[in-house]
Design a protein around this nucleic acid. Sequence first.
RNA 1: GGUCCCAUCGACUAAUGGUUAGGUCAUCAGCCUUUCACGCUGGUAAUAGGGGUUCAAAUCCCCUUGGGAUCACCA
Length: 482
Amino acid sequence: MSVRVRFAPSPTGSLHIGGLRTALYNYLFAKHNNGACILRIEDTDRTRLVADAAENLISSLKWAGIEFDESPVAGGEFGPYVQSERLDIYKKYVQILLENRTAYYAFDTSEEIEAMRARLKEAGADPKYDRNSMRNQLTIGDEETNKLLALNTPYVIRLAVPDKEVKFTDIIRGEVIIHGRDIDDQVLLKSDGFPTYHLANVLDDYLMKISHVIRGEEWLPSTPKHVLLYEAFGWEMPQFAHLPLLLNPDKSKLSKRQGSVSVEEFIFEGYFREALVNFVALLGWNPTADREIFSMQELIDSFNLEKVNKGGAVFDKTKLEWMNFQYMKSIDENELAVRLMPTLEQKGYNYFDITYISKVIVLLRERVKFLHEIPDFGSYMFSAPKEFDSDYKNKYWTDDTQVLLQGLLAEYKSMNEFSHDSINEVTKKYVEDKGLKLKQIIHPVRLIITGVSAGAGMFETMEVLGKDECIKRFEYFLEHHS
RNA sequence: GGUCCCAUCGACUAAUGGUUAGGUCAUCAGCCUUUCACGCUGGUAAUAGGGGUUCAAAUCCCCUUGGGAUCACCA
């Protein structure tokens, strides 16, 4: 049997980091097994719809490197892949349930339901739908039901949950048993004609030939309803795998309020896709434990559901930051230069070439947390400093400094090759001849060239800036700021 | 509250009956040094508790405790 999995978000907002992990695990599992990964939009709740949410979801997923074999955009032979376009399908199939009496019409108003719940609560019982005391096909009979239907009375269709144990096997958790008496007579078709998640999800998974349902643990308690539906239709069930939850530092389900949770925010903050994917993949699953860095392909190669943990995992940004830094160091500098270009343009630095940018990146990548910080952290690489750190100056400046710098400038001017090695050589010889320590001159030089105390190796920095630029900065400083 | 799920350092996790309980992040100390960083070396730190089963338990079973999810005409 071929592996077919799906990621089925509802378009109610931007992609949640937990959603990203669910999508990723589906994707990894599919690719590992040469199967198909499908995207289905579950927009059956008309009240929570957010405009453009589906597009945003897809673009976040794409940013992360997750592509779908079948989707509303790519199409596929089991479409449409948007539930609101499948209404006739749901209505058609729910008839089967009505006919074999595993579902029934119910005509209760929301006020009646509310009153029922209040009553049950008063009596200390679970506020489940009390089938026998309400106005439904079971209590009023088929004839009355048909009459009400003919009068266009609003109705819903509910699942007739049998009084028996419902069992299923979860790949991650093993056998799970829940008794029917603990399951509500779930609404399958709402009065607005839209299906609920439970109906639409089961029907679509079946019709789209989904082999494995990989989703968050929050779905575990409602899985028996789905099992019952498969049984009611007489269909073979897919395999289930309920993923452990991603948690806030206080162990509650990962949510807004305790930091960023949407992928868009992480993109905005400047995380590399490689880092976020790598990090999130290792939250709840671990192939070896003696290794942290994995490319998407390596994740695909080693992924398996059996090794997914059962317990929830706290989403700890600190380690993500570390991982991001690993990618900062390892991604090719030319690639990073390309990625930095938009930021540079935004800051008005659009006249530098990729080669120069990548040299600057090599110089500064280990000194910043995010790539986009480079233009500010190393602003002196893009324009000559206008201000000079006075504390830094005071710390290393003496009465002789001015004269020493004049002499050093002359040395630099006479150089042909201006590499960090040759600058190093010339500078060291110069201070040695004067009987000084390198410290006494290199800090003033840094001040002149960069204006600030923090930065890469001085000679490397000067090499990248080039002889002419360095001399210009020397002359400017000695004229104006001494 | 009912039902279900879960439980190894502060965090992510490894060890599927036999290890001085391992690795990574964070943290602490030291080293390196041309500022800031990177890096390097080392340290602190965990099997929730109690019963079993077994020659042997982090690992299997039971109970307790703790945490979480879920209980909609939301997904």
